[in-house]
Simulated scan of single mutants.
Amino acid sequence: MNFFIDAIRWIFSGDLSGTDPILTAVWVHLAFTAVSVLIAAAIAVPIGWLIGHTGRGRDIAVAISGAARAVPSFGLFILLVLLMGVLHKPEAAVLTFVILGIPSILAGAYSGLETIDREVVGAGRAMGMTEWQVLWRIEVPLGLPLLVAGIRSAVLQVVATVTIAAYVGIGGLGQYILAGIPLRRLDMVLAGAILVAALALILDGVFALLQRASVPRGMRTVPARRQRRAAERLLARSA
């Protein structure tokens, strides 16, 4: 308990021991997270929607996602820094975090479309909708909650892993952990861990609200029959 109190005191003490101000570190941490997740989403969402809409390539996507999850992020980060050179450490970090974020977003994108009742999709086609209209008017709105859940998972994974960016001196909240270890400042190390955890919890709360808000009106009840009726009403409005 004393260690925790000391860590809280350190956060508000201003004793940075040669590290960046906390607000600056938070900003850098968020910037790496945001850029990485946006790039990962730009890659994974179209591919996931294509897989979910056509039903093709799912096994390949699962295999690639599984392989990406198995890659040790720290080892990949160091390898990319060595390959890209010390002048491109931020780019190597972003590439590492993008690779880490793609599997969750990809899974959320195609799973969101796969879980939609095929009768609703079939009804849309029967009404004369084109494949593009079926995708944007039926599948994307109904699959959005799972996509947001995938992005939420990716954000949490990336925000935790951005901590290792400090290992090569490019900032973030991880610098307090790395700087505190050789100084034997347990309060500093624990404070860095608390700040990372607090940031992750805040982001998780924000995306939890976004995930809830992304559920189409009328589909927020649990019973499947009511979800089907809500989907049919959404289809009727889209026609």
Rank of each mutant, 00 (worst) to 15 (best):
V134D: 02
I151L: 09
A208G: 13
V168R: 04
L183E: 15
L146A: 07
Q211M: 10
L190N: 01
M188K: 00
V215Y: 03
I170E: 13
Q175T: 14
R184E: 09
A200S: 15
E139G: 05
S214W: 06
E131D: 15
R184S: 15
V159G: 00
I194M: 15
E131C: 02
A179V: 08
R152D: 00
I138K: 02
L201K: 05
V155T: 14
G180Y: 13
V159W: 11
A198F: 13
G180L: 08
A198T: 11
A160Y: 04
Q133D: 13
I202H: 04
G205M: 04
A200R: 00
G171P: 04
G128P: 00
A193E: 02
A213T: 08
G128N: 01
P216V: 08
T161M: 15
Q157I: 13
A213M: 13
G174F: 03
L147V: 07
T163H: 04
A197P: 02
A149F: 01
V158Y: 03
L203F: 03
G150I: 06
I151C: 07
Q175G: 11
L199I: 01
P141Q: 09
L173P: 08
A154W: 10
V168G: 10
A213H: 15
V158D: 05
L186W: 15
L178H: 09
V168L: 14
G171R: 09
E139Q: 15
R184A: 12
I181K: 14
G192Y: 01
I181M: 14
A149Y: 03
M188F: 00
L147H: 10
P182S: 06
R212L: 06
L135Y: 03
L186K: 04
L190M: 13
W136A: 00
Q157C: 09
E139S: 15
V215R: 10
V158F: 03
V168Q: 14
W136R: 14
V206Q: 06
L201T: 07
V155C: 05
T130D: 04
R212K: 15
L173R: 12
Y167P: 01
Q175N: 11
R152M: 09
A200I: 02
P141C: 11
A198V: 14
Y167L: 14
Y176K: 07
F207S: 00
R217E: 13
Q157F: 12
I202V: 15
P216E: 06
V134R: 12
V206D: 09
G180H: 09
L146E: 13
L146C: 08
P145R: 13
L146R: 12
L146H: 03
T161H: 12
Q175L: 11
G205V: 04
L183P: 01
I164M: 13
L210P: 02
V159I: 14
M188P: 02
L195K: 01
A200T: 10
P182N: 07
V206P: 06
I138R: 03
R212W: 12
L147T: 08
A213L: 15
W132H: 07
G205T: 11
A179D: 12
A208K: 14
Q211C: 05
V168S: 08
L201E: 07
A200W: 00
G192L: 01
R152Q: 09
A198G: 06
I177C: 06
L203G: 01
V196P: 01
L144V: 08
I138A: 06
L147P: 07
V196S: 05
V158T: 06
A191N: 03
L146G: 01
G205I: 11
L203T: 01
P141K: 09
G192H: 01
P182T: 10
V134Q: 05
M188T: 00
